[in-house]
Amino acid sequence: MKIAIASGKGGTGKTTLSTNLAALFAEKVQVVLADLDVEEPNSGLFIKGDIEREDIKYKMIPEWNESTCTLCGLCQKNCNFHAVIQLGSQILVFPELCHSCYACSELCPTDSLPMIKQRMGQLKQFRNKNMTFIESRLDIGQEQAVPLIGQTIEYIEKNFSSSTLKIFDSPPGTSCPVIEATKDADFVILVTEPTPFGLHDLTLAVETMKELEKRHGVVINRHGIGNNDVLEYCEENNIPVLAKIPNSRKVAELYSKGELVYTEIPEFKAELEKIETFILNFQKS
């Protein structure tokens, strides 16, 4: 069972929800929490545990072999991303621009650009009683999140049984990284705020989920501030609203310190329990 937590824009409370929900579940069952926001993984600030595993993650890039190269220039022409540049009598490779398509390498007439492993980031696995927390972090300077997200999901598939509850903290937005993080999920929870910005970004996220044919529901964060437009939108479009987390300065304060919220604020916990019930029912059906 895979639940992805996503939002149309950053800063809506996605990480707060993911970490608290996972911790609440872990009071009773085994749960895997994965931070797939690999450019800015923040869940780790809230979840403490013992490190169990550290894996380096790689992507494949070409490496120039000067001795066999005839400087024919085909590699530069074959790279649509300007990741291979011929500079006089040398070939330069820009790993951050490379999409690992293999075209330059396999189409090189003298095999002078063999593909080699290059580090792009790191996966860490922590354990705290019932909770396994997995965090992947892209190295500074690496620009492509999608391959690392894909490899992280693959790792989880391989190492945990399909019945284990998995919560994916997804990257924000509606572009490729979010799609990669949500496309295998059984259900997607979209976190939003009841404001015009929140509504606008939610509609984009909902359109994306429809395109992917993903079942989805909404959690309204900071409920009480703003207006009712998000609720009305969900009603009109038959999108279930799983919970309404009350607006509170105290949540922001706890978040700023890197602390879990639900243990301190009963109203917050009550809303989390609604989401928990919804997920359990969803799992049964």
Binding site: N80, F81, A103, I179
Partner: peptide, 13 residues
């Protein structure tokens, strides 16, 4: 189209 990266390898071969 969602998966295509635009590398053009297929076009070349």
């Amino acid at each position: 189209t969602l998966n295509c990266e635009g590398c053009g390898y297929c076009e070349k071969v």
